[in-house]
């Protein structure tokens, strides 16, 4: 569940001059003090609220009373679209893991999902309203452990059956639901775009009935990043250089991981480094690009 409703409450308390504390927040929402403190940090750091702790009142106030919480209203429909996309991005597993993971995580946070997992260069997904609707119904059925009556169209013809949905997943830009077939006693995948209609019944199924989902095993190996060794113009504070994971390699040198060579080359053109030691191919590419820019500058191209 999203923490935004708690932050709204906290904001209202401050505006009402009640000087709320993490203890008040924890008591109000029956959460731990630590969780309450994280919410307050989120308000201060991510939402840039000018929070100040006032010891006299043992609570928080705003240093600048003109501060407004960002506009956070979202319709249920927008939320369901974001949930759908968060799941799609989260299950996309190919090049450049960190980028897609960040998007999945971000969308998940907006949609009120606590978790997002995945990998890859930012891909494009179709947000088909019908698929989103079906996906929403199935997500509900999975959560509630409800049996679903499917009308399904496949290459072998159309059929109707009751299945127990276990998990939603995306493969090769198509969406599937893994569901347990009661009459066959096994789990299979159904494409969401081949579902003509579905009806969530009131019948519940047992968790162990669906068992394990065998096809989630055997994921392809994760793609490895390129690593550049750079001498930076100043010592790094933290473990990242402009968002790229960096590890010290001694004498002011750092090993920096990246997936997208174009984006990294662009970063290199912005400076902030003194020496590029390796890899050789990156040096060549950078030299070629700089050569092209010089040619343009000299009006040769």
């Amino acid at each position: 569940m999203s923490n935004m409703h708690r932050i709204h409450w906290f904001d209202q308390r401050i505006r009402g001059g009640h000087y709320p504390s993490s203890r008040d927040l924890a008591l109000q929402f029956e959460i731990s003090r630590r969780q309450a403190q994280r919410d307050i940090e989120y308000l201060a750091v991510s939402l840039r609220a000018p929070l100040v702790y006032i010891a006299k009142h043992r609570g928080y106030g705003y240093e600048d009373k003109t501060y407004m919480l960002p506009h956070l209203y979202m319709t249920e429909e927008e939320k369901s679209v974001l949930k759908f996309l968060a799941r799609k991005y989260g299950e996309y597993s190919t090049d450049a893991p960190s980028g897609v993971q960040r998007v999945a995580h971000l969308l998940g946070r907006f949609a009120g999902e606590e978790e997002g997992e995945g990998a890859g260069r930012l891909p494009y997904f179709d947000a088909d309203p019908r698929l989103i609707h079906i996906s929403g119904q199935l997500a509900f059925a999975i959560e509630q452990r409800r049996t679903v009556h499917l009308h399904y169209r496949s290459e072998n013809g159309e059929f109707r059956e009751d299945v127990c949905p276990v998990r939603l997943l995306s493969r090769y830009n198509a969406d599937y639901v893994a569901a347990y077939q009661e009459h066959e006693g096994k789990t299979r995948l159904y494409r969401l775009d081949a579902i003509e209609s579905l009806h969530v019944t009131n019948r519940m199924f047992e968790i162990n009935e669906a068992g394990d989902v065998p096809f989630v095993k055997g994921r392809p190996p994760a793609i490895q990043p390129f690593t550049a060794r750079l001498r930076l113009d100043r010592e790094l504070q933290g473990e990242a250089w402009h968002g790229y994971p960096a590890r010290p390699a001694g004498d002011g040198f750092y090993d920096i991981d990246f997936y997208d060579d174009d984006a990294f080359l662009q970063q290199l053109t912005l400076g902030g480094w003194l020496n590029l030691v390796s890899p050789k191919w990156l040096k060549t590419k950078l030299r070629n690009r700089c050569g092209q820019i010089l040619k343009c500058l000299d009006g040769e191209e």
Binding site: T94, G120, I223, Q224, D261
Partner: peptide, 17 residues
Amino acid sequence: AESKIVLYDNFGINFTP
């Protein structure tokens, strides 16, 4: 015109299975 770079460790890995 510019070559793509594929690490030995990433050989064969792409978005298809």
